[in-house]
Design a protein around this nucleic acid. Structure first.
Lengths: 143, 143
DNA sequence: TATTGTTATACTCTATAACTATA
DNA sequence: TATAGTTATAGAGTATAACAATA
């Protein structure tokens, strides 16, 4: 698809979905070149930012079902980007840790993701882009 | 999920995807109550705005694969919202027309969709909402 | 009795291939 | 040779149920 049909572009909700789809596709392709799926990238970003976490918490924060998270963490472990370790106090739980190689891969993916976002939002001036970000943040914070 | 993780909300691309997902879910639920799937709603909106169209064109404009469009149009036909008619000049093609009942259903769905968008974007002031729309439109037009 | 991680399974959506009839 | 609509089918992604171990 090149550009959205005028009849649909009148609705902000449709525009939002359309632009997000373009953005998501571009982003997914970019981090895919770094070896990540979007969910894997999300998990690793959370581990990097907020430290080791239990799978159940990752599932909840990323809105990914628990059975799906199993495969995601296993994939990250096989790539050498994360490690499962027994939880210190809760014998049921598993703590997921990011590795040094995981942090490296994350930096690589970050640069690619930035380039992808620039590709989509590049038509906007810097201040327009800031405004868009602020508006979206306001909507997100209210949910 | 309640609100997006701070580590991810820094990226405009992620925010876009997150807000769009919220918006799409709310929108899909709203028009679902009117009996539509999002794609059915998109097809009928195009037929209403731009007149009868061949399936191949609908597929292209909505970025839906041709085999999927078959089922969508069949569903619209069964609901009495659209009709397939032989194309006047091209014997291979089928023209899809919206019916009066389809227009009625569309009006119903439109009100529900508006309410859904209001629910998501309601935190924004009117001028902020206009700004958001304009920025998204600018990005979409540039693709 | 509830929760964590897991396996198995079902279901929906998306995508490809291939066939027909027309062009 | 190419295109429109269709059928069949394969595949990815998503959701549910149920189980073992632990709380």
């Amino acid at each position: 698809m090149t550009t959205p049909p005028a009849a649909l572009a009148r609705h902000t909700g449709f525009l939002l979905a359309w632009v997000a789809a373009e953005s998501s596709d571009t982003y997914a392709r970019a981090i895919g070149e770094a070896g990540f799926t979007p969910t894997q990238h999300g998990v690793l970003t959370l581990l990097d930012a907020d430290g080791p976490q239990v799978q159940a918490r990752l599932s909840e924060r990323l809105d990914v079902f628990k059975p799906a998270m199993v495969g995601v963490v296993t994939a990250l472990e096989r790539a050498g980007w994360a490690q499962r370790r027994p939880h210190p106090t809760d014998g049921r739980a598993v703590e997921v840790h990011i590795t040094d190689r995981g942090r490296e891969a994350l930096r690589d993916a970050y640069e690619r993701a930035q380039a992808a976002t620039d590709d989509v939002l590049g038509v906007l001036a810097d201040d327009e882009r800031d405004t868009l970000h602020a508006l979206l943040a306001k909507v997100a914070a209210a949910r």
